[in-house]
Amino acid sequence: SGELCCSLLNPRNVRFESINMKNVLHWSAPEGTSNGVLYKVKYSVYGVGKWIRKPECRNINRTWCDLSNETSDYEEQYYASVKAFLNGMFSEWVETTRFNPLTDTKIDPPMVSVSSTEKSISIILTAPEKWKRTPEEESVSLLQVYPGLQYNVSVLNKKTKKRWFFSISNHTLVVPWLQPGTAYCVSAQIHVTTPLLDSGFSKEHCIATLKDK
């Protein structure tokens, strides 16, 4: 019986992938295996004794398991672990490193909306929301999670290719003294200084200033 134990190679690269605190456990199949391998998952809160099984991820053949619900308290830290099965053989439990939802999540770019007058552009930025269990649940903006959250805004004059960068804490920005009848493209990024977290830049939102009357 001892020989049967752990004669299946271990799942590999077991880690959390987190975006806006949607925390999903991912792994790769044991080397040399692809079809037919099943997995089960457990997780634990750091500092608390017991492992907790995740029933929805028991005997699954996919290589991910959404643990957002179980790891939603970002004042705690977590471990998760995966075990593989195939034809009566099974692997060892393979653990993640310690996962801190607050520092180990990635943040999406902000939503950008722009409007213009003859000589100015108004930009409104919205930080993404923290993952939530159901659409009905109250939304929590990442601004509430990271009080030091700032926005880096890039404004490009499409004609002259001149670009300005602004770093703001406020979620609105008015860019004055622009040329009438000119196209400008705006893109924005979220920057949290501590813990250090930067989103990517949003896609560009282009708008033209009104023509001179």
């Binding site: 634990s44 750091y46 500092g47 608390v48 004794g49 017991k50 004042e75 705690e76 830290q77 471990y79 490193t97 310690r98 520092t103 813990p195 250090l196």
Partner: peptide, 21 residues
């Protein structure tokens, strides 16, 4: 952040926390 993974890997005790429990 630069040494977190290295340091935490040296701590095998998951079931006990100094600061938070």
């Amino acid at each position: 952040t630069a040494i977190k993974a290295n340091i935490q890997a040296r701590d095998p005790i998951r079931t006990l926390s100094i600061l938070s429990h």
